[in-house]
């Protein structure tokens, strides 16, 4: 969506949000919350062409915060997510992920002292969607631009009508947080239940909270390196902002 935006708009947005120095020094647009609201303030949205690929999503309003030290591995959150939203009990479809960590933790059945989960030190590390800031790995990877932000919560949501079931988003998420609905043939991910997260309500241990968004992507390690390659059209748009080092910044 940035493709058709004149670069001076970007610069003005950067100025408005105090990121000008960052821009000129690194030739790199760091889009934090303020940067994006700056863009919004300038009515930048109006400039986005109707058919332009969607690249930049405004930050989400909320995010699920999970406390592993309270989690008892009951999977009630997973079941609430799928039963109450989809009418079927299916942990593999859940957008919060417990089952994979219950036995041995995110590291798997390695043995040794570092192992988590029921067979390890007892810690259950819940898998939750970070509702990533730009560039949103899953959304960026989607060749159909089927992952958009929910107008209400800012959650990154899969539009099932646009999703063609290629599973590239699944490969893109560094935390392996997308699910694939085999029945519908589309990907699905945490949509924050339109602002009333079922998982949070279902947790009998108060281990989940719905809190104002903050960037959790830098906390801790990634589960794996995501394969988030933007599609060619998107990639072109990306270059409007992400200028190779040593080249002219933005302008």
């Amino acid at each position: 969506m940035i493709r058709d935006v004149p670069s001076e708009w970007i610069e003005r947005a950067a100025q408005a949000s105090g990121l000008e120095a960052e821009l000129s020094r690194r030739g790199f647009l760091k889009l934090s919350v303020c940067a994006l609201s700056g863009l919004a303030l300038l009515g930048l949205g109006d400039a986005f062409g109707a058919n332009a690929p969607l690249v930049i999503l405004d930050n989400a309003k909320g995010v699920i915060l999970a406390d592993p030290t309270r989690c008892v591995g009951c999977q009630r959150c997973e079941l609430a997510c799928t039963e109450f939203n989809d009418g079927r009990a299916q942990p593999s479809l859940s957008r919060i992920k417990i089952a994979r960590a219950v036995n041995f933790g995110p590291g798997g059945p390695t043995g040794g002292d570092a192992m988590h989960g029921d067979w390890g030190d007892g810690l259950i590390v819940q898998g939750v969607c970070r509702q990533c800031p730009h560039p949103v790995p899953c959304a960026t990877a989607c060749p159909q631009n089927a992952i958009k932000d929910d107008p209400q919560t800012g959650a990154r949501v899969v539009d099932p009508a646009a999703c063609v079931g290629c599973r590239l988003c699944q490969r893109a998420c560094p935390w392996d947080m997308l699910s694939f609905d085999e029945q519908a043939g589309v990907a699905t991910k945490c949509f924050l239940c339109h602002g009333r997260p079922k998982c949070v309500e279902a947790c009998p241990a108060a281990a989940l909270r719905y809190v104002p968004w903050r960037d959790l992507t830098r906390d801790g390690g990634m589960l794996r390196s995501g394969l988030s390659a933007p599609s060619p059209e998107n990639a072109k748009a990306c270059l409007d902002c992400h200028v190779p080092a040593g080249k002219t910044a933005v302008k």
């Binding site: 039963e83 109450f84 009418g87 079927r88 009990a89 299916q90 593999s92 479809l93 085999e182």
Partner: peptide
């Protein structure tokens, strides 16, 4: 990896 389906109304189930 499959599902247990709830045949009745999901709101009632909840």
């Amino acid at each position: 990896s499959g599902a247990v389906r709830i045949a009745g109304d999901k709101a009632e189930w909840e």
